[in-house]
């Protein structure tokens, strides 16, 4: 978490090797990410990005099936294992009724579930999501967050998200990384609250973190 422009997306894009690090090195299982081939990394880390997909006529099923590309042969033929993994991903995200639709017909909330299903089909230990609820209303936001929470519990995957939903993150996240202009604070939501870390998140004039309510409140002048 962090304010706009602090570098959340940059951090996630760097972690997933979509862009080169500005400085420093990243290790996955003690292995330098620069030394891991794109092919090998694609079996360890999958992505859900905020940017709109280019317009095309892909069906939901085809879109999810693209998640199997790291495993398919040169002509991209789906094996029985691939088909099984895709079916599991569809089941886990509860989008069975959508699979024959074109993806442009979906609502933002449905599309987000489909993109998560695609990442699940990629069968990686780690899923990185950049602001998965950016375009969603409160109900859809809650649905996505509870889906992610459920996935962490049932699949034992590491799910890293960037989000502006501070209040939800405090309730649901196992661990929070706070990006502030000067430092980086990490810990469980509880620990961060105890150390008053959330006070550093936004300028103090307008919002304030209320410990008893466990959320940010607007300061009324």
């Amino acid at each position: 978490m962090g304010e706009n422009g602090i570098g959340k997306s940059t951090l996630l894009r760097t972690l997933s090797k979509v862009q080169k690090p500005l400085s420093g090195t990243i290790f996955i299982h003690q292995k330098n990410i620069e030394k891991i081939t794109e092919k090998a990394l694609s079996k360890q880390v999958s992505l859900v990005l905020t940017a709109r997909l280019p317009e095309s006529q892909l069906t939901v099923y085809e879109l999810i099936a693209l998640g199997r590309q790291p495993y398919t042969n040169w002509i991209d033929k789906l094996s029985p294992v691939d088909i099984e993994k895709i079916a599991t991903a569809i089941r886990q995200t509860e989008i069975e009724h959508l699979i024959n639709n074109r993806f442009y017909e979906l609502s933002d909330g449905q599309l987000q579930r489909v993109l998560i299903a695609r990442a699940l089909a990629q069968d990686t230990e780690m899923i990185i999501l950049d602001e998965p609820t950016a375009h969603l209303d409160m109900h859809q936001t809650l649905k996505i967050f509870s889906l992610l929470k459920k996935l962490v519990a049932t699949t034992q995957k590491t799910i890293i998200i960037s989000s502006h939903e501070v209040n939800l993150a405090i309730q649901l996240a196992d661990e929070i990384i706070l990006l502030t202009p000067n430092t980086l604070l990490t810990g469980t939501p509880k620990k961060l609250m105890e150390t008053n870390a959330f006070d550093t998140l936004f300028p103090k004039e307008l919002v304030n973190f209320n410990k008893t309510l466990q959320q940010f409140v607007i300061i009324k002048s």
Binding site: R13, S16, K17, V18, T37, E38, K39, A40, L41, S42, K43, V45, S46, L47, L49, A51, L53, P54, S56, L58, L63, L66, G67, Q69, P70, T72, W74, I75, D76, Q122
Partner: peptide
């Protein structure tokens, strides 16, 4: 024939293509 797979991944944009292990 050999670029069918990358072409399909390009439908999601280059960032996704990269994360799918496509060079």
């Amino acid at each position: 024939l050999f670029v069918i797979k990358p072409l399909n991944s390009f439908l999601l944009g280059e960032d996704y293509a990269k994360s799918l292990g496509i060079n």
